[in-house]
């Protein structure tokens, strides 16, 4: 397999959250954009743009399942240019909007595996007097 194409693919896997474009991918492969796209498609069976887009959407779907971030925060985290374009692409690939995708999975707050010792420590209600002391002592 052509090492220079793999380098471009690795770039997407590690930097998808940044403002990355097919031009950046072509640059690390050392090819013109047109030649790069042709070789990439011939080698991996999909265009570099498709790879970049689906990598971002795969990560976004994961974030929708495991975080309580807003759709906008998720779209920014995976390097989408705007929440509008993100929602459109997401719908095209997954057949539903990010919101409905999230609604179809159990809420992250119910699925998250917070160990019992942590829950016991943090969920213990605060003593009201203690809290007032803290406010007075450490504003």
């Amino acid at each position: 397999m052509a090492r220079h194409l793999l380098r471009a693919k690795d770039l997407v896997d590690s930097r998808y959250s940044e403002q990355l474009s097919v031009a950046n991918m072509a640059a690390v492969a050392g090819l013109s954009r047109a030649e790069f796209s042709r070789q990439f498609k011939a080698t991996f069976g999909e265009t570099p743009h498709q790879y970049l887009l689906t990598r971002r959407l795969e990560r976004a779907a994961s974030l929708l399942r495991v975080t309580d971030w807003t759709i906008t925060e998720v779209s920014l985290a995976v390097g989408a240019r705007s929440v509008g374009s993100f929602t459109t692409s997401f719908h095209r690939i997954f057949g539903q909007t990010p919101s409905s995708y999230r609604a179809a999975s159990p809420p992250a707050s119910r699925m998250v595996r917070i160990p019992r010792c942590v829950a016991q420590a943090y969920a213990r209600p605060q003593n009201r007097t203690f809290r007032e002391d803290r406010r007075l002592g450490d504003p």
Binding site: T67, W69, A108, S109, A123
Partner: peptide
């Protein structure tokens, strides 16, 4: 850890009742 080290977020959930973020 995400933007500089390049890692993934595994979970980010705020439990409001506990004032706690996992």
């Amino acid at each position: 850890y995400t933007k500089m080290l390049g890692w993934e977020v595994r979970a980010d959930v705020t439990m409001d009742a506990w004032n706690f973020r996992w």
